[in-house]
């Protein structure tokens, strides 16, 4: 089977349907500290599916509300503006893709991991006084290249998963490189460029499995560690899932230790359960 080329992948990316306007606006507004609760609620209310999922989360047992939350204004006060925006973004992005057929990729497990990475990144960023909103979006889309490869090249992606099954211990990006000649991180970087995300954002996606020891951008370290946390916590609930190698250089640069990471992981895990339930993942 021939290896994939960048122009082949780019042609498929250009052919992707545009993300719904509300989702793009939400993704781009993450990190905009000036966006008011009313502005965010207005964006979400334009898409009924997003609004319904945000309300579902606000009504989940996790938040323990004694009565039903029935408006986005109330949901904002229950969830907080950050979580409202985050869950609506996740709902919009997951709803914009259909489950790829024929590749063998577990669509729900894929999103459970992506949402888990987003929540770990958000919590970790908060603990480290970094931009938690951007961290959430980065975590959410860090593996988006897998979804494109599995949906646009299903037979070849089935070969990737077959190789991985034959060689226990082989990581996903290693199997992708062996079968396809490129991996989901590189493809994710191309998609981020297509969506007009900042170059640094695309770079964090490209490098999440291959951090340089002299990296100076904390966002790259953060998404790498958050991905690792989500794998270690087994948030995809996929038996074949492995924990990729953790860059100890990134670990040291972020000055992480158990006192920082344990509460971050506990909070992210509890939020993950509620968010996945609200999104039907």
């Amino acid at each position: 089977m021939n290896l994939l080329t960048t122009p082949q992948v780019l042609a498929e990316i250009r052919d992707l349907p545009a993300l719904p306007a509300a989702v793009m606006e939400l993704m781009l507004s993450l990190g905009d500290g000036d966006a008011s609760a009313e502005q965010i609620a207005e964006k979400i209310s334009r898409d009924q599916a997003l609004a319904a999922k945000a309300l579902r989360l606000a009504n989940s047992p996790f938040y323990g509300m004694p009565r039903k939350v029935s408006s986005l204004a109330e949901a904002t006060s229950v969830l907080g503006l950050r979580m409202l925006r985050s869950v609506a973004t996740a709902a919009g992005l997951t709803g914009a893709f259909t489950s790829p057929t024929g590749s063998g990729l577990d669509f729900r497990a894929f999103w459970r991991h992506s949402i888990g990475t987003a929540l770990c990144a958000q919590e970790l960023a908060s603990a480290l006084d970094l931009d938690a909103d951007t961290a959430f979006t980065l975590g959410l889309v860090h593996d988006i290249g897998r979804l494109l490869l599995a949906s646009r090249f299903p037979l070849r992606y089935a070969e990737v998963l077959k190789l991985q099954a034959k060689q226990p211990g082989m990581l996903t990006h290693e199997a992708e490189q062996a079968v396809l000649g490129l991996d989901h991180a590189a493809v994710g970087g191309l998609i981020a460029g297509h969506w007009r995300f900042a170059p640094a954002f695309a770079q964090a996606i490209v490098m999440h499995h291959a951090l340089h020891d002299d990296n100076a951008d904390p966002a790259l370290d953060l998404v790498h560690v958050a991905d690792n946390m989500a794998h270690a916590l087994d948030l995809s609930q996929l038996d074949a899932d492995l924990v990729p190698p953790l860059s100890l250089a990134a670990w040291s640069r972020l000055r992480l230790d158990e006192a920082v990471c344990a509460p971050v992981m506990q909070r992210a895990e509890m939020q993950h359960r509620a968010v996945c339930e609200a999104l039907g993942m």
Partner: peptide, 12 residues
């Protein structure tokens, strides 16, 4: 490979 996160998960 050493992965401190796995040890943290084990303790949790």
């Amino acid at each position: 490979r050493v992965n401190p996160l796995l040890h943290i998960v084990l303790r949790l």
